[in-house]
Amino acid sequence: MKNCAVLFLLLTGILAACSDDNDPDNNHGLQLVFEDNTYQLTGVAKEEGGRMLVNYPRWSDIYKYAVVVTQGRTGKTPYPNEDMQQWQHGLSGLDKWVCVQSVYFDDAGDLWILDPAAPRLQTIQGNGAKLVKMDKTSNTVARTYSFMDILADTSYVNDVRIDVARQYAYLTESKGGGIIVVNLANGQMRRVLQAHYSTISDPAYKFVIDGRELMKNGRPAKFNSDGIALTPNGDWLYYKPLSDDKLYRIKTEYLRDWNMNDADLGSRVEDLGHFTTTDGMIFDKKGNLYLGDLQRYRLVKLDSTLKMTTIVQDDRLIWPDSYSIADGYLYVSCSQIQKQPEYNNGVDKRTSPYTVYKVKI
């Protein structure tokens, strides 16, 4: 009888393993939670125990909503309402979504929406470059931080992290390269490390993906400071250019010191070495840093010693873009940027939906 029980357990385990292998949503632990076969998404934000939002930048004529709350795998409701989505060329972008790049829930559960307001990645329209904090009870705008006084009209603010305890925001600017620091209490802000080597993609690095160097208009495609992550205690800001594999960090106490100029700050930057080409990145509460690997279709983790391990490698991770952590899962959006027509001599290479996955961490 004992041998029969052991055999039953072994057979049950084998059947379960086979079932997992045959279920595409359990392949390597990667679970599909949202897909859109029409509109290109970039950002994802998952509320602890609650809503998931995704955003869609205005990068082409194939466009409808900037920010939505998802319902199931394909359902979506414009957030916070239809009216905020109705920007048109020539109108003010101060109270509308113009070209939203990122959505983010901070540690207090507050939702932030980052709008670089540069359709087609060109120039800022309607004076609309802004960071918006939403009121989580009424789903109305709580406060808007405009970047128009510190940015050139060719800038593109890309991603944001919030230090709730100190009331500071840190953002990357991905065109010219640089970090934006915002005192959320008084609204004071500045752009630092502009064109510093840590915010500029290494020109010598060959960004090879899908077997060829990514090109645009006959030249290697270069993306500057993009991914950004704040340690759980808020003491360090990690960041990197997208199209090379270097990772950098700086103590946030220096960024918050308005008496330190760019030369002072540049001397405080720490070069952590070579890791992966990633778009976004995020820390968990234990101090592990999660990044993508655009070239190898995988997600990786760096522990506190900077040891890198692969979490999941899967062909469905087509340009893992933005990250959110909630409910014990890492959520990742896949924007398929390398398949856009401008990187393929005008040919749209996409053959599958834009997606959001989650993986247990």
Rank of each mutant, 00 (worst) to 15 (best):
I250P: 00
E253W: 03
R298N: 13
Q85I: 02
V132K: 06
V141P: 02
Y39K: 09
K286I: 02
F147H: 02
Y197N: 13
Y63R: 13
T231V: 07
P320R: 11
D159H: 11
G29K: 05
Y290L: 00
G128M: 03
R190Q: 12
V312W: 08
D271N: 14
P119L: 05
V160G: 05
F105Y: 15
C4I: 13
L53Q: 04
N259D: 13
M134Q: 09
M84K: 12
K251P: 02
E213R: 10
S267F: 04
P241D: 05
L9G: 00
L294Y: 04
L247H: 04
A169T: 06
P78Y: 00
P232T: 04
A326S: 11
M148S: 11
A152T: 11
D257K: 09
Q167F: 01
A118M: 07
P24R: 06
L32C: 05
N259F: 01
K358M: 09
T199V: 08
V160Y: 07
V160R: 09
K2Y: 15
R190L: 06
D149N: 13
F207N: 07
M1G: 14
M148R: 08
Y323F: 15
S225K: 09
V182M: 07
V33K: 05
V132E: 00
P353N: 06
E82Q: 14
S102Q: 14
P232H: 07
G176P: 01
N3I: 12
N158P: 10
R51D: 09
Q188S: 13
L255K: 04
K46H: 09
R219Y: 12
V54L: 03
F105A: 01
E48M: 01
K76L: 13
P119G: 06
N224S: 03
H274I: 12
K206H: 15
Q86F: 06
T278Y: 05
D163V: 04
A129V: 01
P353M: 03
K246C: 10
K222L: 10
A66W: 01
T309R: 13
D36W: 07
L53R: 00
P241F: 10
S146K: 04
E35Y: 12
F8V: 11
L237V: 01
Y79V: 02
T137D: 15
M84E: 10
G346A: 11
Y290C: 00
W59N: 15
T305F: 08
A17K: 12
V100L: 00
L53V: 00
Q86S: 13
T252Y: 03
S324W: 02
Y205P: 01
A221H: 14
A221W: 15
K96A: 00
Y104P: 03
M215V: 05
N27V: 09
E47F: 07
G128Y: 04
V67R: 01
Y254C: 10
N139G: 02
D23F: 08
K96T: 01
K240S: 11
G13M: 13
F8Y: 12
L265D: 03
N233F: 06
M1Q: 12
W59R: 14
K136E: 13
W258S: 13
R191P: 00
M148T: 12
V100W: 00
G218P: 10
K216I: 14
L15F: 15
L184Y: 05
T144I: 15
I180S: 05
Y254A: 05
G227E: 03
E47S: 10
P119W: 07
D244W: 02
